[in-house]
C-alpha cells in the first residue's frame, strides 16, 4: 500500500466487470452509503437488446439512486451510473458524460476500456478504478491508461474469481495499486467515503 494515498484526490469511482460480476457489484452497492462522497460509474457487459431490467435489478440493493445516463447528463456524487445497453459510456469532462454507438471494443458495447480511458483523459489522477472478474480482456488497456495518468487502480484478486481472464489481463499489462478479494474491495471503497 502506498504511503501517499490521499482519498481526497479521487473525484470519481469507475468499476468494470462482465455479466458474471453482477452479484459482486450488487454486494458492493449494498454496502456503500446513500451519501457516498463519489459518483460511481459502472460499465458491466450486458446484452445489447435488453434495455430494461438491469438498472432495476441493481436498484434492489443499492442505497444510492441508480441511473442509466442520457447523453451529456451531469456526473453527481452519491449516484450510481451504469452504461446503457448497446452504447459506450464516456466521461466527456469532469462534470458530464457522453455516449457513443461506435464499434464494439473487445467484443463489447458498452466497453470498460472506453469508459476507463475516457475517465483517465478527462480526470487524470482523480480517477479510482476497480476491475472485477470477467471472461475477456476488456478493461486492461483502460486500467493501464488510468495508471499512467496517475489514478488509482484496484483489481479483484484473480485467485478469488470464478472468471479470472479479465483481472489477469490487466495484471499482465500494467502495474496496479491493489489486488484484493471482494470483501477487501468493499472495505476499501467504504473507507474512501
Amino acid at each position: 500500500m502506498s504511503g501517499s494515498f490521499n482519498k481526497e484526490q479521487y473525484h470519481v469511482l469507475v468499476i468494470g466487470g462482465s455479466a458474471g460480476s453482477f452479484p459482486s457489484v450488487s454486494r458492493i452497492l449494498e454496502h456503500l452509503p446513500n451519501d457516498y462522497r463519489l459518483p460511481v460509474v459502472m460499465c458491466l457487459h450486458r446484452l445489447r437488446d435488453k434495455r430494461e431490467g438491469f438498472k432495476e435489478a441493481l436498484e434492489i440493493k443499492s442505497k444510492m439512486p441508480v441511473c442509466e445516463p442520457n447523453d451529456k447528463d451531469l456526473i453527481l456524487p452519491a449516484h450510481v451510473y451504469i452504461a446503457p445497453a448497446n452504447y459506450h459510456l464516456l466521461i466527456e469532462t469532469p462534470h458530464f458524460f457522453a455516449l457513443a454507438t461506435t464499434e464494439l471494443v473487445q467484443y463489447s458495447r458498452p466497453s470498460i476500456d472506453v469508459l476507463f480511458e475516457s475517465a483517465a483523459d478527462a480526470l487524470k489522477s482523480n480517477v479510482l478504478a476497480v476491475l472485477l472478474s470477467g471472461a475477456n480482456r476488456d478493461g486492461a488497456l483502460g486500467m493501464k491508461r488510468i495508471h499512467v495518468k496517475g489514478g488509482y487502480t484496484v483489481v479483484q484478486d484473480p485467485a478469488t474469481c470464478s472468471m479470472n481472464t479479465m483481472p489477469q489481463a490487466a495484471l499482465d499489462l500494467t502495474p496496479v495499486d491493489r489486488i484484493l478479494d471482494l470483501d477487501r474491495i468493499i472495505e476499501f471503497l467504504i473507507d474512501l467515503h
Partner: peptide
C-alpha cells in the same frame, strides 16, 4: 464534436 469520442476516432 464531443471530444471524448472524437479523440478515440
Amino acid at each position: 464534436y464531443a471530444m471524448s469520442s472524437f479523440k478515440r476516432r
